[in-house]
Amino acid sequence: MFPFHYHRPTAWPDAIQLLSRPGAVAKMGGCDVLTKYRRGQIRPESVVALHLLPAVGELRTSPAGVQIGAGVSLRQLVAAPSFRELWPEIAAVAAQVASPAIRSAATAVGNVAQGWEVSDLVPVFQVCGAELDVVGPGGERSLTVDDYARQPGTGALNPGEIIARLRLPARQQGFRIAYQRFALRDGFDLPLVSVAVGAVVTAQGFADVRVAAVGGQDMPSRCEAAEAALAGGGDAASLAQAASALAAWAKPPSDFRASGEYRRHLLGVLLSRALGTLRAQ
């Protein structure tokens, strides 16, 4: 394999400085970066491991919110009772990502940070209003997962910037998430498309509805048109409107895995199913 320098900084300033160099690539779990390296898709000058940085492994849960350190693996997230209790839906989604060996290395933040077109966790984080805390040469800043995921890869980061943690806001009373994915295989597969719906569910219907989809646009995105259709509370007519709003909004890619038409069709099916699940709750 092509050689690279491998740095494992233990202090944030060192990490920031190392990552500011041209040709440097950040690695946490390494599942994405090293897979690309091994397939010859990237040839980094240096790889900067982030897992030894202070506090990256911390998972803080409280009713006021959750902080998931950048080094928290999917396995750790799924196994943490405090997290499972607060966000059982997210834990369930994380538990079906890839395979056990990958979940031991891959991190929840990495799932967002790598900026894939397809990800199970990103749409779920989007409907929760999750934010990312970023540190870098210019200090600290925050941005929403929604904003981060507007471009592929790590394009939302400036040179030297590192995502330190992901924050989930306090869970609103009655807030529920339904997540539906469609994958060709039943084991170890990325979704072709998926839909996450978050809403406050009451006896009267839905409020504060958020819809995010994978496979609808180039990147996982919120669909405001579908959200607007459901704003009225989610009666039967609005469910159909939401499905057509989602279909109209979607500009799904066509590739060897599936056509855009098929992805668009699936989005409608999954949205209906997700809303059905929410209503049943």
């Binding site: 060709l184 295989r185 039943d186 084991g187 170890f188 597969d189 060897f256 895995r257």
Partner: peptide, 9 residues
């Protein structure tokens, strides 16, 4: 990207 059946399929 080349999908072979897994233990779940």
């Amino acid at each position: 990207d080349y999908r072979m059946a897994t233990s779940c399929d």
